[in-house]
Design a protein around this nucleic acid. Structure first.
Lengths: 341, 341
DNA sequence: TATCTAATCGAAAGGGGTTGCGGAGCGCCG
DNA sequence: CGGCGCTCCGCAACCCCTTTCGATTAGATA
């Protein structure tokens, strides 16, 4: 910068001012001289020095579980796009489902002096925020806690989509539904599970069986095994995520069960591959890109407040009907489990 | 830091030394005092100040096209994991296929004073690096250019996997193959296309038709239409990516064509959903997570060299046989295009 | 002409760390 | 007992940019 300054025959202060477009009195002529010097030396200002000097990092953290989980890409996309539009940067961190790592992640966030952080993994403890808020860092959660100072929350309303799904299925004549929920340790999975159970109860149905499994694809397989070996095989299976649903559909095909003729399957999320599944998956869409955008805006807004008071946001879900659901079967289910060789 | 220092009754310099584990003479006692003070005040050192003072950012850039493209998550994962292991950070940037945006991305990289950057999108120009290397930033490309000072390159050898795939298909009796390649503007797509054409030629086959399309899923659909309306319908379709392949399979089903009984389909990449496709997709695996790791290591290694001389790396591909390929049909293809209602 | 206002820019003080250099204390040898 | 060599730690400069405050000049007003 000093070089630029001397080349343009001005002081570093002036260079700084033209580069930051300060609404200040800078003559057109010197502005041009500075800009020319910048180009000739092709000078880029150092963001770290800038952050240090201003005390504003313009950095936002985004914490996810793991990038390979197809739930997250759209969330990231929305968040990053919103940040980019305002010229702000995002620091992407993943917990890899490792509780020990969460501490390191939080440390990194504080050290990086982020302005705010969106914690989109639900396998995290609310208490983790104390270090963050102590450092005056804004936090936004998804489905986790109440809003308070420096903490906002976005609630995804699964009920609406779930109700639509149940209505859809009941209209098709289904009366016996199984539920394969996500892991019991996951708050969001529990939300969904409750919405499902409540919704079914409202129609005088009880989920049977009601299984919990983790989010790995093959987890659906063993669940299917349990379902098919039960005395009263359901006509529809609600799954806690699209990934589970796709695993379930694979396992059902393995078992010689047709979807949707024999059993209908419904997922949750509407990940990008849901419509490429075979059959294309009927699912409850959660607007994930919008979630990312909303998370960023929530932070941005909160941090501009004098009192830094958090707010509560809501996001709606809706049913997307594709081909994995159909009329309930009337016939008895003919199961022929294929033996592994 | 000053607070910590005064609380521990030492100078800031000493605090710095303790916190950085400098191999320096610090008595156990003062070390403990400092550490205690750090805990009591729960102090985190500011990474920006550190970066400024040391002149080393410990930051690495990773440039991709877009996060929603299922090719990238594993690459990101590998890259981030490798960086994390060394305590380094990564700045993730996407071009969104927008040439104008590439300039902004590069500017951001230089301003952020990254040590190195992996450019994993192939819709980029080699010339874009000049600003980077001018700033002494290491660069690693994938399938793009020769290595030189500050520039490394990782070549993915598609030939091996392609040859395996063709061998596989020929063994199954196929003699008529179509190719749906990726966009002509994409270097990697062209590499694959050439490998395919060369491999087929080696077996005295010529791809027909040979179509280029972009990477959107629905792009496969129109290609299928073209293929099915040709006089001599192929028995196998090679696709330039798994995404295209999945789009193709959907379109084929729409058209009442069975996979693999009527037509076999082969993809490239082995994205995580390939094995959840129906039928599970036979594909040529490119080791993407390994690509990410290798990209990081290449940078790390290069930057440690005095001469900063880049190197050339190679990555092998291999065929993964699943269920979307089968014996070539003997019968005449019975096509019944379904009309949209 | 003296005074005032507005426009334009520079000097310098940070922001929060790092690090070379040197000083103080101390055990040990000659 | 003086000098030497180790440890251990503080001083102060420096990293690069921002920003307050004040200086300078020109033009306008009285």
């Amino acid at each position: 910068m000093k070089n630029v300054a001397s080349r343009a025959g001005v002081s570093p202060a002036t260079v700084s001012r033209v580069l930051n477009n300060k609404t200040q009195y800078i003559s057109e002529e010197t502005r041009k001289r500075v800009l020319d010097a910048v180009n000739e030396l092709n000078y880029y200002k150092n963001v770290h020095a800038r952050r240090l000097a201003t005390g504003q990092s313009g950095l936002f953290g985004l914490v996810i579980s793991e990038i390979a989980n197809p739930y997250f890409p759209e969330v990231i996309r929305g968040f990053q796009a919103a940040a980019w539009d305002r010229g702000l940067d995002v620091l992407l961190l993943n917990t890899e489902y490792d509780p020990a790592r969460i501490q390191s992640v939080i440390r990194k966030l504080v050290e990086s002096d982020v302005s705010g952080v969106a914690i989109m993994t639900s396998s995290i403890d609310d208490s983790a925020t104390s270090s963050l808020t102590a450092a005056e860092i804004g936090v936004v959660f998804c489905n986790l806690c109440h809003s308070r100072k420096l903490v906002s929350n976005i609630t995804i309303n699964y009920r609406r989509g779930v109700l639509q799904a149940i209505e859809h299925v009941v209209t098709l004549g289904h009366r016996r539904a199984a539920v394969i929920a996500g892991p019991g340790t996951n708050g969001t999975a529990m939300n969904i599970r409750q919405a499902l159970v409540a919704g079914l109860k409202h129609k005088n149905m009880a989920p049977y069986p009601l299984i919990s499994c983790d989010y790995r694809v093959d987890a659906g397989a063993s669940a299917v095994h349990a379902i098919l070996s039960a005395p009263d095989v359901p006509t529809v299976i609600f799954c806690g995520s699209d990934l589970i649903a796709m695993g379930v559909m694979s396992a059902l095909e393995e078992a010689g069960v047709r979807v949707p003729e024999d059993i209908s399957v419904i997922g949750i999320d509407d990940i990008s591959f849901a419509f490429l599944a075979r059959p294309p998956l009927t699912t409850i869409r959660v607007p994930r890109e919008q979630l990312g955008v909303m998370a960023f805006n929530a932070l941005d807004k909160m941090l501009k407040l004098k009192r830094k008071l958090g707010a509560a946001y809501k996001l709606e879900t809706e049913l997307v009907v594709r081909a994995s659901t159909g009329p309930a079967r009337k016939h008895k289910l003919n199961i022929r489990i294929r033996q592994a060789p």
